[in-house]
Amino acid sequence: MRVIGLLLVIAVGLLALATLLAILEPAHWVPALIVHFRWQLAAAALGLTLASWICQRRLVLVPAVVCLIANTVPLVPYLRTVEPVMGTGPMVRILSLNLRDDWTDPVKFQALIDREQPDVVLLTELRGDMAPLTAAFKDHYPHRLVAPRLSPLDVALYSRWPISKGEIDRQVGTWLPVLKAEVCPPQACLTVVGVHAALPFGDFKSLQDRQLALAKEKAWSGSHGPVVLIGDLNTTPWSENFARLTRPEEYFLSDGSRGHGPQTTFLSRFPLFGLPIDHVLVANAGVIDRRIGPDVGSDHLPVTVDVQLSR
């Protein structure tokens, strides 16, 4: 029993240290990384709370409960049911996928497109030769905005409907594009901003900050109608960077994943390490449904969202 007690003290101590470090997120990229593992920290805290209670180790029970509360509170909006926000305009189905270059299997990708039949598709981390994948589009997506392949973070937009005012902004860095376009289904238009954000490590973290700030600016510059910001943002919903995107200000974007549970999209082959970093954020529109697609070969899973536009 002494060994078990010692192991509990060490485990709860490490959990408390990680939880405290997460508070220092704005100060350095290392504690900022810890924030992304809220689901894992909450699960560990729950397990250690139960173990401490069963073993009657009051010394570690209290800090385990404190850690459980601290790591669970940010997750509550994603656990409780949220009623769909209905719009008054047409429905648009959006699919987003990080291809991981050549990892995505063309056959599985074809099956995904045939099953979901999205209206708008955003692809990131493009292949050198996109032909094996775009063959799946056939004649259904005649309208396209594709960034010249200058880096692994380039993006491409495909649509059933006309694309206008298309632009690819590289002011943050040549290899860090932010795509913006207007897609117009019948009787409405939708501003689409697509991005594959820089990694949250080292010097890249400041670039990610600037790139996401630019993406938010693009989402609202000159737009008063429905807006979606989609792509691999390389950040989770409980990070400060994500909070800046969704914080109520003069304008803000709503997180379409709220109320849909822990929909992890990256490293999901490893359930203990999966992270929700692929997002669809909306404004002046309602998210009717959001779901994660099957493994198509990439280290990311596809995200499909049904959005109803507001007129």
Rank of each mutant, 00 (worst) to 15 (best):
A197I: 01
A197H: 04
I230E: 00
L207K: 15
A219T: 00
K165C: 00
L150D: 04
Q208F: 01
Q208H: 07
L153S: 13
W220T: 07
W161A: 12
V172S: 12
G225I: 10
L190Y: 02
H196M: 11
T174G: 11
Q171Y: 01
P152F: 01
W220P: 05
S151Y: 06
A213Y: 02
G173C: 06
K180M: 04
S159F: 10
V155I: 15
E167L: 15
K180A: 15
V178C: 11
V155K: 07
K165H: 13
D203S: 14
G202M: 10
W161S: 14
I168M: 03
V183E: 01
D154N: 12
K180Q: 09
L179D: 00
A181I: 07
L190R: 02
Q211W: 00
V193L: 08
K218F: 08
T174A: 13
G225R: 12
L150N: 08
L179F: 02
V155N: 14
S151H: 08
A198Y: 03
L229P: 04
V155E: 02
D154V: 06
P200D: 07
Q211N: 08
F201P: 08
V155A: 12
S223N: 15
L153I: 08
I163E: 00
G202Q: 11
E182T: 15
L199W: 15
L150V: 13
E167H: 13
L190A: 03
V155F: 02
V172T: 14
G231I: 04
A197C: 05
E167M: 13
I230V: 15
G231Q: 05
Y158L: 09
L212Y: 07
P177V: 00
K218L: 12
G173N: 04
L157V: 05
E182A: 08
P226S: 11
V193G: 07
L150W: 02
G225D: 05
S223P: 01
S151F: 06
I230T: 15
L150Q: 10
S221I: 02
V172H: 10
Q187Y: 09
G225V: 14
